[in-house]
């Protein structure tokens, strides 16, 4: 993405509009190559009990590639758990940024709206910069922004489902009402999904599985980088209206008749 069209979250500028999650990569080496190919500048990590691994850690990879870690609250089902996990992320990584995730159950991994809003309010009060993973519900998105979230991150489809953007109309409404950056989070399956999200006006796309679980993660990371970029440019350029009938692009005048 060009320097004259940065993504700005809580006053901080990013030239890449792709946020790549680290989850699901088969190895740290594959992850590192995918991160580089994606051009991302921020990448999510989860907080778990320590189990030192001689093969290194994801933080080593992020340090080496210069990608900023964004701790998440994955695995939390209640506001209380999420707030505690966010605080752990803050202490471990020295950042008050958090990707807030509070899900309702393990099968859908859909956000629990009540716990999510409660957690968002508590974390904003505590000085966190909250990027909230949410349903594609325009009302909840607005409530999260009103609560002080720095970015609202609606899903396109359930986490890891690769189903793309199931409700583009809701996303368009969320975008239209937005007072903070809107980041499409979850559901992206391939590069066209990322492009569509950006064409709909999303400010960025966050994805993990679509890259880390692709047959060739590094190649897909590059595809996502270009998909996000193409979608952003198309959004800025403005698509032509859809028409039912054809409209010739060659001049009607001067046509020879035989």
């Amino acid at each position: 993405m060009s320097d004259d069209d940065p993504l700005v979250i809580a006053g901080e500028k990013f030239t890449s509009r792709l946020i790549l999650g680290t989850g699901g990569a088969p190895s740290l080496d594959v992850l590192e190559r995918a991160l580089v190919a994606s051009g991302t500048q921020m990448s999510t990590v989860a907080m778990r009990r320590v189990a030192p691994d001689p093969r290194g850690s994801v933080l080593d990879v992020l340090n080496r590639t210069g990608v900023r870690p964004l701790p998440n609250t994955a695995g939390c089902f209640t506001a209380r758990e999420a707030v505690t996990t966010a605080k752990l992320g803050r202490e471990a990584l020295g950042t008050d940024w958090v990707k807030l995730e509070v899900v309702a159950d393990e099968h859908t991994l859909l956000p629990d709206p009540l716990e999510l809003l409660d957690a968002a309010e508590q974390l904003v009060d505590d000085g966190f910069v909250v990027l909230a993973y949410t349903n594609d519900d325009p009302v909840l998105a607005r409530r999260l922004a009103d609560a002080g979230c720095a970015a609202v991150m609606p899903l396109g489809a359930p986490i890891g489902s690769g189903m793309g953007i199931r409700n583009p109309y809701n996303l368009a409404i969320i975008r239209e009402q937005a007072t903070v950056p809107i980041i499409l989070d979850a559901g992206v399956g391939t590069a066209s999904d990322a492009a569509i999200a950006m064409e709909l006006g999303c400010d960025a796309v966050l994805l993990a599985s679509a890259v880390t679980r692709a047959r060739e993660p590094e190649l897909m990371a590059e595809a996502m980088r270009d998909g996000v970029r193409a979608g952003r440019l198309a959004h800025r350029a403005g698509r032509i209206p859809r028409r039912l009938y054809a409209q010739a692009s060659s001049p009607a005048e001067g046509v020879q008749t035989w």
Binding site: T22, G23, A25, V45, M47, S57, L59, P71, L88
Partner: peptide, 25 residues
Amino acid sequence: PRGTWPAHALGDGDDVDVLTAVQGG
């Protein structure tokens, strides 16, 4: 908070969790 670690003495029976960042999200 990190700053309290050097002075925080653990007590008998304390339940301690130590976490770090792993791949996720």
